[in-house]
Amino acid sequence: MIDEGVDQLQGTQAVEARALGRTFKGGVQAVREIDLTVARGEVFGFLGPNGAGKTTTVRMLCTLLPPSGGSATVAGIDVVVDPAEVRRRIGVALQEIGLDPVQTGRELLELQCGLYGITGGDARVRTGELLELVGLKDAADRRTKTYSGGMKRRLDLASALVHSPEVLFLDEPTTGLDPASRLTVWDEVRRINEAGTTVFLTTQYLEEADQLCDRLAIIDDGRIVSEGTPERLKAEIGRDVVTLALDGADARATEAALGELAGLERVVAETDALALYLEDGAGSIAEIVRRLDREEIRVGAIAVARPSLDDVFLQATGRRLEGAEEEQAA
C-alpha cells in the first residue's frame, strides 16, 4: 500500500522552494531566502548543525510554520495557499517523537488512520501492515510509554505512513538513537523510498547523509552553502585530504613552510591541525615531510584520506560539523 499515490507527483517536483525565509520575533533570521528543489523519488538530505535552520525549513514545508518570505510547493501544492491539501499529501515525523504515551501502538496508528480518513476495517488492516513493516507487531497492544527510544521512533515513522504519503519529511530521524536502532531506521527509510515515496530528511550526522541521500544540501546559519550528490560534493573539493596534526607547531609557519606544493589546492586551518586539499595525497607526503624538516618544524601525525562530507562542510563553512555541534552544546 505504501506506493499508492506516489505517481500523483508525475510532472512536478516533490519540493520546490524559492527565496524561502523565516524571521522570528526579535528579528532572528532562522532561514534566509533559500532555494530548494527535490525531485520525486529522491532521498534528499538537509545537513547542518543544531540551529542551522533545518527544523524551521521542515516546519515551513509541512505547513506548521508560515514563511516570512518567498514561496514553497510540496507535491505541487503551495504551502501557504492550500496547506490542508499539502497535509493530505505528506507524512511527517518531527525531531520530537510525536506519540501519545497513554495510547497503545495499535490505538495510535488506528487513530492516525482515522485522521486521514481511513476508518473501520481499512484502518485495522493498514495498522496491521504498518506494525509488521516496522517490526512492532508484538508490542502493538502495549502503551507507547513503555517503548524504547528505537521503538518509539519506528512507531512515529509508521504513523507518518498511514496514508501512503507522496512526500515523507523526517526531521533528524535518528538523533538520540543507539547505533543498532539507527541502522534499523535507515533500512526503513530505504524501504519506504524504494516503494516510491520521496523522502526529505534533515540530519546532523555525516554518515547518515552519506549513506541515505541521493542528494543533499548543506545549511549553515539559515543559508544553503552547498548542494549536490554526496559524491559530487566530495569530488568538488579535490582528490585527497592530508591532515597534519600540529602538536603545538605554529600553523602559519607550517603553512608557509609548505610553500607552493605541487597539486595543493587549498589549506584550511583547524584546531591544532592543518587540512591540505591536494591532488595526490600519498605521493605528496615525502615532499611535505622534506619541506617541514627544512624549516625545522615538528608536527605530529600525518594522515591521508579521501574527502568526506565533513571536508565538504569544512570547505563550505570554514569549520567542521562536529565542532559546530560542540559550540552549540557549549
Binding site: 497535509r87 518531527l94 517523537i97 480518513g117
Partner: peptide, 16 residues
Amino acid sequence: TEIDNGYFDKLLAAPI
C-alpha cells in the same frame, strides 16, 4: 503535555 512531547505537532500536521 502534548505540546511538550511533540504529539500536538503531529495533530497539527494532520489534515484535520
